[in-house]
């Protein structure tokens, strides 16, 4: 696989948010932006990176469908099998990293 391999152990918070949004079924860049609160300049490059890595697949919407909805065709994104597979480990790796720094509470430690 060409391009930049994203090391799942060092996934950033923003990347995790995008992965999570895709995992909940968000398909469009704008949708992910409004769900995560991230800017366009952050979301789209992350989507490209994940697509190049193979975690995300994308396709242009069917023109006829878009036409019926009275709008131009948009790009639809979805988590690939690889992407689904890494979502949980990535989340855990992220939490573990931040837990080690005391940024998030350990399980069972109660509310800080």
């Amino acid at each position: 696989m060409g391009g930049e391999a994203t090391d799942i152990r060092t996934v950033t918070y923003n990347e995790l948010l995008v992965l999570q949004a895709l995992g909940t079924g968000s398909e469009y860049g704008l949708e992910i932006m409004s769900l995560t609160g991230l800017s366009a300049g952050t979301v789209y490059p992350i989507l490209r990176r994940f697509e190049a890595t193979g975690f995300v697949s994308s396709r242009m919407e069917d023109a006829a469908v878009a036409h019926r909805n009275g709008r131009p065709a948009r790009r639809i994104h979805a988590l690939s099998g690889d992407g689904r597979a890494v979502l949980q480990p990535a989340r855990e790796a992220f939490l573990a990293r931040h837990r080690a720094m005391g940024l998030v509470p350990s399980p069972g430690s109660g509310t800080p």
Partner: peptide, 22 residues
């Protein structure tokens, strides 16, 4: 506006991989 520019730059950098993926 900023998003389009940053995406264009990212797409250029990842061009071959993206083309391959698609």
């Amino acid at each position: 506006v900023v998003g389009a520019l940053r995406d264009a730059i990212a797409t250029r950098r990842l061009g071959p991989s993206l083309a391959n993926a698609r």
